[in-house]
């Protein structure tokens, strides 16, 4: 459903971030996008909903190419959760913020309200609907940020560093929420145990090239590949020691 072909992009200052990236994500998959800092992960993500326009190659979502003429529909289909929830939550209350996306899609009245509450219930934040975002904890804000995107009923959910800055309990709660969602997920992360826990498949981006696309387990246990692309497992963590992963 997500189809990226030969995507290349250079920033206006001449720095080339992507060199012919191919990526296909099928419906219902959860895929981790791994890679060191500066590999081009965020640049790739910004192409998925047309914030950046491909220098060469193409991106399409469920058959619809990412082009200026149907950006609104593309942005409904691709929901991006940015890394800093303070960038994503800009309205006065949680309810208004979650309503922002669907209202832009033209929803009104009871339908809008229902959509907002469903999204907030999915992330367990329905009781906080009338609170201003800056009075929530960081973990709660991250969950509301996920809800703002879920409220648009996206076909693919793109998460940029979803576990960053979360305490272990919030990190686990977010994992439970992501597992409970019936949606395709592309997750950009440096948190390799999190990738292994949530995503059966992993793609490694390094210097603007896709250098691996395999099961997450095989990627994380390929010591040579890991070393070559500045990927390191946290101290004491060995994927081989885990017998079964949570469904």
């Amino acid at each position: 459903m997500l189809d990226v072909q030969g995507l290349a992009y250079a920033y206006p200052d001449g720095h080339q971030a992507l060199f012919g990236v191919d990526l296909h994500v099928h419906r219902g998959e959860r895929v981790a996008l791994l890679g060191p800092n500066g590999a081009g992960k965020t640049t790739l993500v910004l192409h998925l909903n047309g914030i950046l326009t491909a220098g060469a190659g193409s991106v399409s979502v469920s058959g619809l190419p990412v082009e200026k003429t149907h950006l609104a529909e593309i942005r409904r289909r691709v929901g991006i959760v940015f890394q800093d929830p303070d960038d994503q939550l800009f309205m006065g209350t949680v309810r208004q913020d979650v309503a922002f996306g669907p209202a832009n899609l033209g929803l009104k009245g009871a339908a809008l309200e229902a959509r907002v509450m469903t999204a907030l219930e999915m992330v367990g934040m329905a009781d906080f609907a009338d609170r201003p975002p800056h009075h929530l904890s960081f973990g709660q804000r991250r969950r509301v940020a996920v809800a703002t995107v879920l409220a648009m009923e996206p076909e693919i959910l793109v998460l940029d560093e979803p576990s960053s800055n979360l305490d272990p309990a919030s990190r686990r709660e977010l994992a439970d929420i992501l597992r409970s969602l019936d949606v395709t997920v592309l997750m950009v992360t440096h948190d390799l145990p999190y990738a292994l826990e949530l995503c059966p498949r992993a793609v490694v981006l390094s210097d603007g090239h896709v250098v691996a696309d395999d099961t997450t387990y095989d990627v994380l246990t390929d010591a040579a590949l890991m070393r070559a692309h500045r990927l390191e497992l946290p101290f004491g963590f060995d994927p081989r020691s885990i017998d079964s992963l949570p469904g």
Partner: peptide, 20 residues
């Protein structure tokens, strides 16, 4: 720069110049 990131996040959710 935060303003720019907020604007990106708004565009990503279909902002067209009017707050609902």
């Amino acid at each position: 720069e935060r303003g720019e990131r907020v604007h990106l996040a708004m565009l990503s959710r279909g902002y067209t110049g009017r707050l609902p």
